[in-house]
Design a protein around this nucleic acid. Structure first.
Length: 585
RNA sequence: UGGGGUGUCGCCAAGCGGUAAGGCACGAGACUUUGACUCUCGCAUUCGUUGGUUCGAGUCCAGCCACCCCAGCCA
C-alpha cells in the first residue's frame, strides 16, 4: 500500500478506486493494474492449480506465492484447484499431501475446487463447439496424428476426418462418452489451423478416451479433457481474473484465449506467464526426485535433503523462511539460472534466529576436570532461552566438577587469533566461570584425551570481580547430568559445481546394458549425487534441559547450528542449518 | 530454415529517454558471555553485441550473437 489507508477503507472502495492506492510490485501486478483500469473487473481472483500426481517442492512455492500474494495484494481471492484431468497418475494421497503443504506454508484458499467438478460442463461446451463447427472427431491413430502434425518448419496436413458433418461429429462424440469406442481409437480435436506456426494451434486434441478409474469420479467417465481445453474453462467457470503460470505456457496462450472465446465466456481470464524458480545443488524435476526415492538414494519424499516442502519441513526450515526467500527472489520473465541455495539458507537462518530456543550441546566431547571444584562453585547457571525474545525466559544448566567441551574449542597448537582454550590459557564457560587450562593429558597416539583446568575465583557469570579477561566464550555440558543424543547432518544432494543433467542420465541409461538393476542405476546417478551427504553423530551430549523441550521446537545448539528433533526418529536431532562461521572460513 | 520468449555485478532483481535501487554472496572494520546476531563501510564509468536516432539511450530503432520453450491421445 502506498499510503495510510487501512485495509478496511480499501475494502470499502470499488476496485478501480482501490487500485489508485495500491503499488504494483512486479510486472504481473503492473499488468493487473492496467486490467483493472481498462476492463470490467470487480475483484482479483487467482488460482493455484496443481495436478495431484506428486509432492510439492520449492519450485511450486514460487507459484503459490505469486498466486496467493498477488490476489492478497489487491484484497482478492485465490482458489486451490486440483487439476485432475488425467486419471492415470493422479491420486487422493497426493491431493492430501498438497493440501497439507499449502496449509503448512500458511496459504488460505478461498475455495478448494477440482477440474473434475466441471466434467459435465466441459462435455456440454464440447458439444457446443461441435455444433458451431469448431471441433471434430478424428479416427486417426496417435501415430497418424503425430505424423500429420507437421514439424517446426513445415505445416501439418488436415485429417481426412476434419470435415465430417456436424451431425456425425455430434453422434460420434456422444458415443465416445457412452463408451462405445476403444481407448485411443478416437479423439475430439479443436478445428483451428493445421498450418499455424504455433504447434499448439494445429487442431489440438481436446478429449481422449481412457478407461482409467479416476480417483474422484471413478468409472463415470471414459473420456477426459486435455489440459489445453480444460484449464481455460476451469478458470473461466470460477471467475478467475488472472491465470498465472510459468513461461513454457506462453505458446499455449493463443489456444487458451481461443477456448475461452469460442466457449462464449464474456469476461475472459487473462493468462500471464512468469519464470520458474530453480535452486542450485539439488534436483527440481519431479520425475527425477521420484527416482531418488525409488532407488533409495534418499529416505523418502521427506528426506531432509529433498527440495520438497515435506523435506524442508522435516529438516526444520520454516514456512516463513521459505516464503521470504521466494518473495526476495522476485518475479520476472527472464529464463534464469538456479538460485544460490545460500539465499534460501539466509532467509531460514534469519527466521530461526528470531524463534529458536538456545541450548548447549557438545557434538564432539572433550572431557575436562575442574581440579579445584568444590561446593562453593556448584551453581545453577542461567542460560537465556532466546536473547532475541525477552519473553522467552531462561533455563538452568547445573555446573559440576567434570564437564565436556567441544573438542575443537581446545587447541594444542593454537593457530593465530585463536581465542578459545589452550594450554596455560583461559576461556569462559558460557553462563558459568572462567577456567584456566593447567594440564593436557594425551592418549597413546598423542591425541588430546582430557584436560585438567581450574576455575578462576570470583569469575562467575554476571558477578565477575576476578579481573581476568577471557577472550573466548565456549559452551559446555555437565558430565553428571548431560544426556547423550544423536545428531544428523546433511550436505547438499548434488556434488559441488555440478548441474544435474537429466539428459545425460537418460543417455547413459539408454546406452547401458539392457536389463539394469538398482545398483547400476544408482551408480549412474552417483555422477551427480553427493555421496557423503549424510553424517550421523552418536557422540553428542546435550544439557539436561533438552529433555524438557517439546517436539517440533526449533533449537539452536549454541555456536553450532539450528536443529530440530527428527519427526521420523525421535531419538535424533536434524541439523537444519549451521550457524555462520567467520573464523573457520 | 518456423513460432514464442529472454539477455543489467558470482546469483536473484529494480529500472518504463535525464546520467545504474535492493537482497544474497563476498571483503574490511565495530560490537559481542553464541567468532552467531546487530551495526558501519566497500563491492557494475557500465547494462549480450554492433551501428543508428537524440542535447542526452540500459531504456527508442535496425542488424548480429547467445540462451530457453514448442512437433503428448501429459500438465
Amino acid at each position: 500500500m502506498d499510503d495510510n489507508k487501512t485495509i478496511e477503507e480499501l475494502k470499502a472502495m470499488p476496485l478501480k478506486e482501490r487500485n489508485k492506492h495500491i503499488v504494483p510490485r512486479n510486472f504481473i501486478e503492473q499488468e493487473i493494474e492496467k486490467d483493472i483500469e481498462n476492463k470490467n473487473i470487480t475483484e482479483i481472483i487467482t488460482r493455484f492449480p496443481p495436478e495431484p500426481n506428486g509432492f510439492l517442492h520449492i519450485g511450486h512455492c514460487k507459484a503459490l506465492c505469486i498466486d496467493f500474494d498477488t490476489a492478497e495484494h489487491y484484497l482478492g481471492k485465490t482458489n486451490l484447484r486440483f487439476d485432475d484431468t488425467n486419471p492415470l497418475s493422479e491420486d487422493k494421497m497426493y491431493e492430501e499431501a498438497i493440501k497439507r503443504d499449502v496449509e503448512w506454508l500458511g496459504f488460505k484458499p478461498d475455495r478448494i475446487c477440482y477440474a473434475s467438478d466441471y466434467y459435465q460442463k466441459f462435455y456440454e461446451l464440447a458439444l457446443k463447439l461441435i455444433e458451431d463447427g469448431k471441433a471434430y472427431v478424428d479416427d486417426q491413430t496417435a501415430d497418424e496424428i503425430k505424423e500429420t502434425r507437421g514439424t517446426l518448419t513445415e505445416a501439418g496436413m488436415d485429417s481426412p476426418y476434419r470435415n465430417r458433418s456436424i451431425e456425425e461429429n455430434l453422434d460420434l462424440f456422444k458415443r465416445m462418452k457412452a463408451g462405445e469406442f476403444a481407448d485411443g481409437s478416437k479423439v475430439l480435436r479443436a478445428k483451428i489451423d493445421m498450418a499455424s506456426p504455433n504447434m499448439n494451434m494445429r487442431d489440438p486434441v481436446i478429449y481422449r478416451i481412457s478407461r482409467t478409474k479416476h480417483y474422484r469420479t471413478g468409472n463415470e467417465w471414459v473420456i477426459y479433457p486435455m489440459y489445453d481445453y480444460a484449464h481455460p474453462l476451469e478458470d473461466a467457470i470460477e471467475g478467475i481474473t488472472h491465470s498465472l503460470c510459468s513461461l513454457e505456457f506462453q505458446d499455449h496462450r493463443p489456444l487458451y484465449d481461443w477456448v475461452v472465446q469460442n466457449c462464449g465466456f464474456e469476461n475472459p481470464p487473462r493468462q500471464i506467464e512468469f519464470a520458474r524458480m530453480g535452486i542450485g545443488r539439488t534436483i527440481m524435476s519431479k520425475r527425477y526426485l521420484k527416482k531418488l526415492v525409488e532407488l533409495n538414494i534418499v529416505d523418502g519424499w521427506d528426506d531432509p535433503r529433498m527440495p520438497t516442502i515435506g523435506g524442508m519441513r522435516r529438516r526444520g526450515y520454516t514456512a516463513e523462511g521459505i516464503r521470504e526467500f521466494v518473495t526476495r527472489a522476485g518475479v520476472s520473465k527472464a529464463n534464469s539460472q538456479a538460485q544460490d541455495p545460500a539465499a534460501l539458507e539466509s532467509c531460514v537462518r534469519e527466521h530461526l534466529n528470531q524463534i529458536s530456543t538456545r541450548v548447549m550441546v557438545v557434538l564432539d566431547p572433550l572431557k575436562v576436570t575442574l581440579t579445584n571444584f568444590d561446593d562453593g562453585f556448584a551453581c545453577d547457571c542461567q542460560i537465556e532461552n532466546n536473547p532475541n525474545d525477552e519473553n522467552a525466559g531462561t533455563h538452568i544448566a547445573r555446573f559440576g566438577k567434570t564437564i565436556y567441551i567441544e573438542r575443537d574449542d581446545f587447541a594444542l597448537m593454537p593457530p593465530p587469533k585463536y581465542h578459545r582454550l589452550k594450554e596455560g590459557g583461559v576461556v569462559r564457560l558460557k553462563g558459568a566461570y572462567i577456567i584456566h587450562c593447567d594440564k593436557v593429558i594425551l592418549d597413546e597416539n598423542g591425541e588430546v584425551k582430557e584436560l585438567e583446568c581450574h576455575i578462576i575465583e570470583n569469575s562467575q557469570s554476571g558477578n565477575d570481580t576476578s579481573g581476568v579477561k577471557a577472550k573466548g566464550v565456549i559452551h559446555w555440558v555437565n558430565a553428571d547430568d548431560c544426556v547423550p543424543i544423536t545428531t544428523k547432518h546433511y550436505d547438499y544432494l548434488l556434488k559441488e559445481n555440478t548441474e544435474f543433467d537429466s539428459g545425460k542420465i537418460d543417455e547413459i541409461i539408454s546406452q547401458g546394458p539392457k536389463n539394469v538393476d538398482k545398483e547400476y542405476l544408482k551408480s549412474v546417478y552417483s555422477e551427480f549425487i553427493n555421496q557423503d551427504s549424510i553424517l550421523i553423530n552418536k557422540n553428542a551430549y546435550a544439557e539436561k534441559f533438552l529433555e524438557t523441550v517439546d517436539a517440533g521446537t526449533h533449537l539452536q545448539f549454541m555456536r553450532k547450528g539450528y536443529f530440530i528433533k527428527d519427526c521420523n526418529d525421535g531419538s535424533a536431532y536434524i541439523e537444519t542449518i549451521g550457524l555462520k562461521d567467520s573464523y573457520n572460513k
